[in-house]
């Protein structure tokens, strides 16, 4: 392989690798748990009631993935001034399967005999509560420290929106409301659509940005295959030179080495076809090739054309 081609390969590979590495997202979003603690209410006075009509503290788990996740076998651990307790989420209850982007609510009332969603822990209203969600192997999925002292009655400590990294106090004003078993922020619009509707009323932005991406994608593909094509031509020429014992590039060019003639390809193809489909000792097919001056290819034959153009009768 000559130095020029080698140089091209190195440059292309370096650019591709560089781009890939540089564009790799280094944040820790990858490998994050799909199940997260989403909202916690410690002082439940008049808020959400459980199925026994009781106002108890609750912990909301959110499935941030787009596939169902099963909580059965996982653990909820609570550490506070009242002690350290861990709850095993029982298997066998279909309700522990959390649907995509949905929630599961657990009552921290220390009444596990009331059902799967009543845990054997209580939250302390007078101190910080450290809550962990662990998988069946007790590997940490998510944790949060709830500053209970800072929370007023019926106020929750919640992620700003479902699965968001930022936490805030909900229930303090009408824009930040407590949302047991539902989205932390109610989505009543499609922000992306609205953005286009407001900022790109005539569609120029969409046309320019989208056409830029389409062109860039196909342009890169063009450059790549231009390069791959050159390498392929070089390799076929080199192989032909080797086979013919030619070492001089000029001579190879004069003899048109590496540029297979159509009839040679046709003969090889027929031989391969015969071998693969009807292998026998005596070949019955005779291939007669008559050279014509007019350039010919199967594409120019009407027989090989695709369907006829519809004609009005």
């Amino acid at each position: 392989m000559n130095n020029r081609i080698r140089k091209y390969i190195y440059i292309c590979m370096s650019v591709f690798l560089g781009l890939t590495v540089a564009s790799c997202n280094s944040n820790d979003s990858k490998g994050e748990s799909k199940l997260v603690i989403n909202e916690v209410l410690v002082k439940n006075v008049t808020n959400y009631q459980d199925d026994y009509g009781q106002h108890s503290a609750w912990i909301e788990i959110f499935n941030k993935s787009f596939g169902s996740e099963n909580l059965a076998g996982c653990y909820i651990r609570v550490q506070n001034n009242l002690g350290d307790s861990i709850y095993f989420i029982p298997k066998g209850d279909v309700l522990t399967v959390v649907k995509p982007r949905q929630h599961a609510l657990f009552w921290a009332d220390n009444q596990p005999n009331r059902g799967t969603f009543h845990i054997n822990c209580v939250l302390d209203a007078e101190s910080d509560n450290y809550i962990e969600l662990l998988d069946s192997g007790k590997k940490l999925l998510d944790s949060v420290t709830v500053p209970a002292i800072a929370l007023a009655d019926d106020c929750s400590w919640a992620r700003v929106s479902d699965g968001n990294k930022e936490w805030e106090i909900k229930g303090v004003d009408s824009n930040k409301y407590v949302t047991p078993s539902t989205n932390n922020t109610t989505l009543n619009s499609n922000p992306k659509k609205d953005k286009f509707a407001n900022l790109d009323k005539f569609g120029y932005g969409m046309a320019i940005s989208a056409m830029t991406v389409v062109f860039s994608g196909l342009l890169i593909l063009f450059i790549l295959f231009k390069f791959i094509g050159r390498v392929a031509i070089y390799l076929s020429k080199r192989n032909a030179m080797k086979a013919k014992g030619v070492t001089c590039e000029k001579e190879a060019k004069e003899k048109k080495l590496g540029e297979a003639q159509g009839e040679v390809i046709a003969a090889i193809s027929m031989a391969l076809h015969e071998m693969q489909n009807s292998a026998h000792d005596y070949e019955e097919t005779v291939l007669t090739i008559t050279r014509v001056k007019r350039s010919y290819s199967p594409w120019s034959s009407k027989i090989y054309s695709l369907r006829e153009t519809p004609n009005r009768k």
Partner: peptide
Amino acid sequence: ALISNPKLLLIGAAAQFGIFGAYM
């Protein structure tokens, strides 16, 4: 045909303007 003459890829890209023209 495309691999042997990759610049034809760009024609395929240009024709997509029909999509965005109709969008507008």
